[in-house]
Design a protein around this nucleic acid. Structure first.
Lengths: 351, 351
DNA sequence: TCGTTCATTTTGAACGTTCGAATTATTCGG
DNA sequence: CCGAATAATTCGAACGTTCAAAATGAACGA
């Protein structure tokens, strides 16, 4: 197999000029229909494909998005981000965009990578997964005019930077809905197991519980537990809750890991039917039949791409200025209910 | 901020020619030390970065690997492949390679993507994750001289294609070790829950059980169950096993999903201490304290890259010819033991 | 018939890099 | 201090594409 055919080969075969071939590919509407067909036929016959690098060199854009894969987590929760990346790849493909991944060790390293990829014109725009309190990357990216969007709000920014585009999921609303649902179904005392403050995401989710739990006084304190993420942490926290003089009759957790632990604790305490709700609707939750709050990742990804590239195109928009349309989207999660809200160890597998 | 500096800018600033700048970057050893420093200083000062696309256009290689992300699985097992991709990104970075991801719907679609990426010179080499029985992609890739390596053996190929490079994990050995371990610890009757045949991976793993279970006659049949992957499937299968007149006193499963289900069944049957071993050592296994057979993904990735690019470089090697060094690697997994081999619902969380 | 306008196609240059050959600088033996 | 050998550097071209501008052709009204 010789070398790949180029525009010139096609041009020769179709008896037209280079540029016409280029036009057939990039702006077919400006070329006469009969010519178009002739050229297209030659393209198909020769199996011509544009050389992406040559095109990028000339047009000075790569149609490629960069994403940093988070460090591997031992926990269960990593799966959400993997699903995000997956959907990003899918939807990017639909827009004729490519996705390049990289890993990095800390924010500084991530920025170094971003810089390399961008300066080399490998990548046009970046997607940041997860944002911290006062995230140092954001300022740098805005400062250096790197087009990007983050999945995560700018936590703790006094004045939100108008150049910062972001998408996030309204965890507060999600938790609120879950709590209200539990209360509507008869749970008077819904407890909360979350993460220690400050944690942007965690604090929001907890706020959702606070504004809907309907508890007063000491209960508001006692029934809200903060612990690191993890199954055994969740278990321990739930065990403590269940030993209270007035134990809760439902628990909402900030993550599926915590919820799984809580489920075990409930099980151990002989409270197999205690309603428990997790967050993220990970495969584990599905596997063990745990109710969970699901993030609408499809919408998140779609919104992120729209913010970056507009409704349909694949041209990167520069970071927005203050007077533009809102540079962010806040999406609402939904509760996925499962039959029992617990491990379903009741010895009745079939039905 | 104006345009990015180019080799010419650096050349001007350092009082040398374009080509010398290029040499400083690509073959520093052939340029005189004093010159090198002068040029390097100019590079640093101007913040010059080579334009990746221009370089690729000229050198006709992209230093980029393509990977298809598997369709999202609902199950627990997807995590292994995500970890694989993650490690691939890490190790590729160390070799100055980039990783581009894409999704595809079926083999034909995958090949179409590969073709586009390759013809456009976007990607030099591909990594196939998972191989089927008589995988149609392999023949095509070899036929079209696309450099690739697969994580997965060429199942069911009469004559293994010498042009096909692959890495795989010896599931048979892994299961064998696990079974032997269980037997050494006193389990006389170790059962197997696996997948329906034919399934390359599944059949291998089952073979590991067969050659080490030490069972004869009817037991060999009765104590081996085949079922689709999934938690409830595992649960059902295990429940059936435990209702046998002579139930097993340990179970090894072809996946963590099955093992989790089996654990639930054991729990329900009041056999909380029944030793159960899963496969893949997914986060769930870690979370619920389930023993599991772990694939050495670091080594898998390292081997894959070595097969593709040689020991250190980033030059793709063409698909090997028959007379070369072996074009494949078979790695051995290891058993990760966890305290109880089950959900640890024994009411003793702390200790 | 001629000039005008619009649609269509072609031409030359440029994007930033590296290859290969050619040129110049340096070293070394005698 | 000369000439040969080798080290170091430079020059011109090429990679395959698209941009901007120029050229051609067709259609139309006067």
């Amino acid at each position: 197999m010789g070398r790949m055919p180029t525009v010139d080969d096609v041009a020769l075969a179709a008896q037209v000029s280079r540029q016409t071939v280029s036009n057939v590919i990039n702006s077919p509407e400006i070329v006469r229909e009969t010519t178009r067909q002739r050229v297209q036929e030659a393209i198909d016959r020769l199996g011509y494909r544009p050389h992406a690098s040559a095109r990028r060199l000339r047009t000075r854009k790569s149609s490629t998005i960069g994403v940093r894969l988070d460090p591997l987590r031992d926990g269960i929760s990593g799966a959400v981000l993997d699903r995000f990346v997956h959907k990003l790849a899918e939807q990017a493909d639909a827009r004729d965009l490519r996705v390049m991944i990289f890993t990095a060790d800390g924010h500084a390293d991530e920025l170094a990578h971003i810089r390399r990829l961008r300066d080399g014109s490998d990548v046009d725009a970046f997607v940041l997964i997860g944002t911290d309190h006062g995230d140092s990357r954001i300022a740098w990216l805005v400062e250096n005019r790197v087009p990007f969007v983050s999945f995560g709000r700018p936590w703790g920014a006094e004045t939100p930077d108008p150049h910062h585009r972001w998408v996030d999921v309204d965890g507060r609303a999600g938790v609120r809905d879950a709590v209200q649902h539990l209360r509507a179904n008869g749970a008077g005392r819904v407890a909360w197991i979350g993460w220690p403050s400050p944690s942007g995401t965690g604090d929001e989710r907890r706020a959702g519980w606070e504004e809907s739990c309907g508890l007063e006084g000491a209960d508001r304190i006692t029934l809200a537990v903060a612990t690191e993420d993890g199954v055994s942490e969740g278990r321990r926290a739930a065990a403590a809750l269940l030993e209270l003089p007035e134990p809760p009759d439902a628990i909402v957790c900030a993550s599926d890991s915590l919820a799984l632990g809580a489920t075990m604790a409930a099980q151990a305490a002989g409270l197999a039917r205690l309603p428990i709700v997790g967050f993220d609707n990970t495969p584990v939750a599905a596997a063990v039949g745990l109710s969970s709050i699901e993030q609408p990742l499809d919408e998140v990804v779609a919104a992120a791409l729209t913010l970056l590239f507009g409704e349909h195109g694949d041209d990167v928009r520069p970071n927005p200025d203050s007077d533009e349309e809102p540079g962010h989207r806040l999406l609402v999660p939904r509760l996925v209910e499962r039959r029992s809200s617990h491990l379903a160890l009741d010895g009745n597998p079939g039905a």
